[in-house]
């Protein structure tokens, strides 16, 4: 699980061009959107595509997104439970 979290942090930095951040600077439970990392709706679309492309998970209900993308912890847990 911790390997997956590190992997996710790396992907978030790379895909969302957060070039000023390093993997160690993103806490597992840091809020990704809003006051936390400051991600926005365009980033959410990038993350949805990443789930599909890299982990084979299609987000059927967009309402689920809020809880799934809350933090690296929640993303990792969702991927572990649903990856194909």
């Amino acid at each position: 699980m911790s390997d997956l979290k590190e992997e996710l942090k790396g992907k978030i930095i790379e895909q969302l061009n957060l070039e000023d951040l390093t993997v160690t600077e993103i806490a597992d439970d840091e809020v990704l959107f809003g006051d936390g990392l400051g991600l926005d709706s365009i980033d959410a679309l990038e993350l949805i595509v990443m789930l599909d492309k890299d982990y084979g998970i299609k987000l059927a209900d967009p309402k689920e997104g809020k809880a799934i993308f809350e933090s690296v912890n929640s993303m990792a847990a969702y991927i572990e439970a649903n990856r194909k």
Binding site: N17, I42, L45, E46, V49, D52, K53
Partner: peptide
């Protein structure tokens, strides 16, 4: 990506 997995940033 065979017309799949299109991300918005570069398009915008």
């Amino acid at each position: 990506n065979n017309e799949e997995y299109l991300t918005p940033t570069s398009f915008i």
